[in-house]
Nucleic acid binder design. Sequence first.
DNA 1: TTAAAAGCGGTATACCCAGG
DNA 2: CCTGGGTATACCGCTTTTAA
Length: 255
Amino acid sequence: MLVENQLKRTDHTHLGQLLTYASGLQAVTIVWISRHFTDEHRAALDWLNEITDDKFRFFGLEIEVWRIGESGAAPKFNIVSKPNDWFCNVAKGASQLRGTELTETKKIQMDFWTAFNSHLDEHGALFKFGKPQPQYWMNISIGRSGFAIEAIASFWDSVKNSGESHELRAELYISGINAKAHYQALELQREDIEKGLNRQLTWHNPENARACHLYTQKAVDLNDRGRWEEYLSWLATELNEFYRYFRPIVLNLEP
DNA sequence: TTAAAAGCGGTATACCCAGG
DNA sequence: CCTGGGTATACCGCTTTTAA
């Protein structure tokens, strides 16, 4: 990064110096500070930003000196030129920054899915598992839009309807425009499905939501990391079974 | 060009805690 | 003890990216 200071108005000499510095470099951020930018120099910076990729970034800053009350003089910078994607990237950077300030819950969720990923690597799985997110669920694609296998590690126990205990769930998640119809088609085969999967399922079809779920659930304590291995193993087994069993059913289901 | 997968962001709701 | 306002998060669905 190069900062060029100029106390007077911008002139060709300084512009020339900037270009000389920049030439031959693979990437550089150049900040040109001056009391006043002439229109042609501002336009020159705009043009440089336009014709170069995001490895070259040119900023033009006009400096003003402010004094508020009896306080000392403070500089104020006005941006007269910047790279086109600057605000975009700043916004992205800010959101990434926010992302690093995770709450305790989100940290645990992140850790859990990361651990789950390693577990799958070690033991193998039928399905692909996505990038760990700081959230209580993870989607696993099953091969048809509107359907997914969902892994859930939640601080909310949906059976007890309280936050006192936590839960793991393996779900077949049905969403999309035909969700209700698909759900009903599956519900007709309920006995066969529970027999084929060798599990009792919870059939969840809330009236005011478009999506439906069928799942198995296990009450756990996510804060007890000593038992995570057991949890990961349970969840992996359930998800593998769900994937293996439901994939052909879902793919063959009528539209 | 399309469907599927992955990722993103908004919203409703439960929870917590301060103040009456 | 009750209320209500702020906050964390569960949940939902949309948008973007990827792959066939």
